[in-house]
Amino acid sequence: MTSRERICAILNHEPADRVGFWPGNPADDTKTLYYKHFGIQDTSNTSKMSDTGRHAQTLTIKTGHPDLELALALKSDLMWISPELDAATWQHPENKPMWDVLGGKPRTSLSQPGVFAECESVKEVEAFDWPNLDYLDFSASLANIEETRAAGLAVFGGMWCPFFHIACDLFGMENYFIKMHTHPAVVEAVTEQIVAFYLQANQRCLDLMASKLDAAFFGNDFGSQRDLLIGPRMFQKFVLPYFKQLIEQMKSYGLKVVLHSCGSIVKVIPLLIEAGMDALHPLQTRAAGMDAENLARQFRGDLVFIGGVDTQDLLPFQSPAAVRQEVRRLKQVFGERFIVSPSHEALLPNVSIENTLAMSAEATIIN
Rank of each mutant, 00 (worst) to 15 (best):
E94N: 08
R329S: 04
E84C: 11
N350R: 11
K251P: 05
P131S: 09
P113N: 15
F299M: 04
S76I: 10
D67M: 04
A296G: 07
E274G: 05
M159Q: 13
F171Q: 05
N220P: 06
D291Y: 06
P83W: 09
A358K: 00
T356S: 08
N367M: 03
I61Y: 13
D207N: 02
A216E: 03
D67Q: 11
A56S: 13
R6T: 14
S82Q: 14
Y242G: 00
W90H: 05
N220T: 13
G219V: 10
V190K: 01
P320M: 00
E336T: 01
S224H: 04
A216D: 03
L85N: 10
Y198C: 02
L199C: 12
W160K: 07
A150T: 05
N45H: 09
Y34N: 00
F21W: 01
F243R: 03
T191I: 11
K256M: 08
D302L: 11
F338A: 01
D129P: 00
M49D: 06
K237D: 14
V268Y: 00
D28G: 12
A296V: 14
G24N: 01
F222L: 08
E69P: 06
W160L: 14
L330V: 08
E188W: 14
A322L: 07
L283S: 01
S319W: 05
F171G: 04
E118C: 11
Q236H: 10
I247R: 00
L314V: 05
N25I: 11
G276P: 06
L280R: 03
D67N: 03
C262P: 06
A216W: 09
A287E: 03
D86E: 12
M1F: 15
E274Q: 07
N355P: 13
M49P: 00
D77R: 05
Q41A: 08
T60M: 09
H13Q: 03
H281S: 15
S76T: 09
P106F: 13
S47W: 09
I40E: 01
V257Q: 02
M173T: 12
V155G: 01
A216S: 08
E354T: 01
S343N: 06
Q298L: 10
